[in-house]
C-alpha cells in the first residue's frame, strides 16, 4: 500500500479475513466503501452493529434469532414434530425450503473434528440432551449433518449416545438427486445410492 494510508490498509486486512475473500477482492471492497456517502456508511456500520447486538442463540434449538424463543420453536404447528439436527444455522435456511412438512431443528454449531480441536463438549450436544430430557413430545430425531467424514462421525456419535432415550434416530439419505438421470450421475453417487437402497413400500 502507498504512503500514509494505514486506516485503508487496516480495513483491507479486516475484509481479507472473510471466507472466500482474497486480497484483491478485499481491496475492491475497501475502495468501494471509501467512495460511499456518509448515509450508506452509517447504514452499513449500523447493520453490522445490529446483527452483533440483536442476534442471539435460541435457548431451545440454538438457532440464530432476534427473539428468544425463535419463531420456529414457538410455532404451534410444529409442536410434537420431529427434530432435524444440523451443523450450522445456514443448513436450517436450506431445510426451511421444505414447505409442506413442518419440522423443528437443533443446531450443533459445528461438527466433531479432532484436527480442529472440536470434541463433543465444543458443540451443542448438551443442549440437545437437555431438550430431549425435558420434553416427551419428540417422535423422532433426524440427523442431517453433512455427508462427509466429520459429519458422518458426528451423526454416528449422536446415534450412539441417544440410544438410551429410546426415540427413533434416523439419518438423511444420500444418493441420487431428484429429477437426475442415472446416466448423468457420477460413479460415487451411483454406488452410494445403491448402497443406500430401500425396499419399495
Amino acid at each position: 500500500m502507498a504512503q500514509n494510508l494505514t486506516s485503508l490498509e487496516h480495513l483491507i486486512q479486516i475484509l481479507e479475513k472473510f471466507p472466500g475473500i482474497g486480497r484483491k477482492t478485499a481491496q475492491r471492497m475497501a475502495f468501494y466503501i471509501l467512495q460511499m456517502d456518509s448515509e450508506g456508511i452509517y447504514a452499513l456500520a449500523q447493520s453490522i452493529k445490529d446483527v452483533h447486538e440483536k442476534i442471539v442463540h435460541c435457548s431451545v434449538c440454538c438457532n440464530i434469532t432476534e427473539t428468544d424463543t425463535c419463531p420456529i420453536c414457538s410455532d404451534e404447528k410444529r409442536k410434537s414434530s420431529p427434530i432435524i439436527v444440523v451443523e450450522d444455522p445456514i443448513d436450517v435456511m436450506a431445510l426451511q425450503k421444505i414447505k409442506e412438512m413442518k419440522y423443528r431443528y437443533h443446531i450443533l454449531h459445528g461438527r466433531l473434528s479432532p484436527l480442529d480441536g472440536i470434541g463433543p463438549k465444543d458443540i451443542r450436544i448438551k443442549e440437545l440432551f437437555a431438550r430431549i430430557t425435558e420434553n416427551n413430545d419428540i417422535p423422532e430425531i433426524i440427523l442431517a449433518t453433512n455427508p462427509n467424514v466429520e459429519g458422518e462421525a458426528t451423526a454416528v456419535y449422536l446415534h450412539k449416545i441417544l440410544k438410551p432415550f429410546e426415540i427413533p434416530v434416523t439419518r438423511i439419505a444420500r444418493g441420487l438427486p431428484v429429477g437426475g438421470d442415472l446416466e448423468f450421475s457420477d460413479e460415487i453417487t451411483l454406488s452410494e445410492s445403491i448402497r443406500g437402497r430401500r425396499a419399495i413400500r
Binding site: 479432532p114 463433543p120 467424514v149 462421525a153 454416528v156 450412539k160
Partner: peptide, 23 residues
C-alpha cells in the same frame, strides 16, 4: 482425525473413539 484424537493429551472417550473406528 483418528490419529489426532489418539495423540491428544487426555484419554479419549471410548464412544468417541468408537465413532472414528467405525469410519
Amino acid at each position: 482425525q483418528r490419529n489426532e484424537l489418539l495423540r491428544g493429551v487426555s484419554v479419549p472417550d471410548p464412544t468417541l473413539l468408537g465413532v472414528w473406528d467405525d469410519q
